[in-house]
Design a protein around this nucleic acid. Sequence first.
DNA 1: GTGAAAGCGCTAACAC
DNA 2: GTGTTAGCGCTTTCAC
Lengths: 353, 353
Amino acid sequence: MVTIYDVARRAAVSPATVSRVLNQRQGVDSEMARRVLEAVETLSYRPNSVARSLRRQAAPVWAVVISDIENPHFTSLVRGIEDVARANGKSVVLCNSDEDLAEEAQYFEVALAEQMSGVIISPASDRLTNIGALLARGIPVVTIDRRLRNSRVSSVVVDNRNGARVATRHLLAAGYERVGCIVGPLATSTARERLAGYRAALREAGLRVDESLIRVSDYKEAGGYASANDLLSGATSPDALFVTNNLMTVGALEALSDMGVRVAQDVGVVGFDDNPWARLMRPTLSTVAQPTYDIGRRAADLLLSGAADPPVVLTLPTSLMARDSSRRTAPAGRSGRRTGTAATQEPTRRRLP
Amino acid sequence: MVTIYDVARRAAVSPATVSRVLNQRQGVDSEMARRVLEAVETLSYRPNSVARSLRRQAAPVWAVVISDIENPHFTSLVRGIEDVARANGKSVVLCNSDEDLAEEAQYFEVALAEQMSGVIISPASDRLTNIGALLARGIPVVTIDRRLRNSRVSSVVVDNRNGARVATRHLLAAGYERVGCIVGPLATSTARERLAGYRAALREAGLRVDESLIRVSDYKEAGGYASANDLLSGATSPDALFVTNNLMTVGALEALSDMGVRVAQDVGVVGFDDNPWARLMRPTLSTVAQPTYDIGRRAADLLLSGAADPPVVLTLPTSLMARDSSRRTAPAGRSGRRTGTAATQEPTRRRLP
DNA sequence: GTGAAAGCGCTAACAC
DNA sequence: GTGTTAGCGCTTTCAC
């Protein structure tokens, strides 16, 4: 392996000078610098970043701890983070926590052991996720997508409560009367906030919240399937569903399909998190869209600047993508809906806020 | 920072002994070992893996270089890799190459500088991707999803040619006559193999290959959209499309939808790579499914064992998921197809292989 | 402006 | 079995 000493010898300078040149410190004689660069070239020297990290007591690496790398919502966040990371010479280590506190803690240990210079996390629990050791070692931490209750950290999130409120209101305005809700693990801030928004919308419409129309699930496809199945076969079956993440929405739609329930006509649906195939489903799927890439970018920016002290919370807006799955009316266009049942349509009865 | 010396002092042993205990070397007095563990505990000592890596000249880290972290196909591969990595104490660094050779090369530099102990890559080009420096430094490399032509490396891939052949044959058997093909960058082995399979199926059916029905694209959504648009507005418009990856399939379907072309009835479609929402589209989408998770797992296993010398190539099978998008016949069930046009159905004319 | 030398935290000879 | 010690490759005082 070619070391900095080899380069120094070849360029007839000291290792210190080579280091200075390589780290663009100014004040190095330009002729010497030239020789160093030449030696680097001819020897095809590559700095050993492990040695550098040991010496500097910090590795140019960020850990990004998310709960599911197969969830497009999270990968889109990661894209945003990555672009900033790359532009600033940081590597990104992706860690799947699977919504598991032990896994999460394990990754914090790795971040500590590897002397990483930052951690971005979507915490599995807003109270139990413990970033104390990270902060104690001065490693900047930013939470993303979700918040933490017991620590002073900067966060980048969306306005979940309002997003959920708008979605629910939209279903009510479309004439649905018994809107159910499938929500994620209540240990996450997103689940609680989205549930709160759902409740708020019902209250604002002068409706009482029927707890039997709420299912707490796991943000996964199978969970959405089971919850939808369960809700639809209950005594007071909902005529609409607000499903609070993308994976559970897929599961819920599969359940409806398997039960022979027609989306929109029989049961209106609004999901959370937009995606390219929402437009390709029939009926097309209404969703609450989040600026995912931007969330990631901003979290990374925060991390770069040391995570901000005192901590800041950036709350980005969501936007309702109203499509056919939440319209009782048969659409005029060619969206592939059966036309025979258009008569199911009925006038809007809810108060429009 | 607590070091191994602090632990040694506290346990009244030498640093070497602490190291031995921590690395589970046998032959350490059990009483001493107990004291060491106790000291580790009370001081909440965490080994510094940077120092360890420097000393050992290797970091317990794998680089996984893929072209798009937002493509579910790749994230599913990564899942498989990750599970093996975690079970063996390796961290995974995810790198997006964006199908770009320069980016790719950049990540190889990082892997080298970080002394990583393995690289899994889905090469952007089968001839131009250069893993020479990696191999020269003895870093094991495995390619995944795609192969490399100019290097001796182990690979885990699927039988792309046959998958494409079966898909095309399936469309012909369903009565489509002018099957078009949207293929990825020809620098990738997958694109060439899938195209070859498509051609083979046409030949086997006694048809000549109409080059004007083939579009070379980029494995991205926008590329699929543009290609479909282009194909459908050409002089000899296809009555079916074989689209060779998931993202381009989404794009192609969007294009068809925007043009008012009915999938299945007007244009049959088979995509590559299965996904959960294929069942939710209307008509449901036929695809060629790959055992993605398993591909990742096996690649990781190979890497663990030093990438195998001489290199091996594992070729896994694909499976055709025949659904409604490739059926001209109107389905009996509740799949949401307009029923008025079922008369479009016509008998199969192709020879069934 | 440049070089000598110490030292980041750990492991592995090697000596006892 | 256990301890001493050198050294992995780099950066950074501190002299000059």
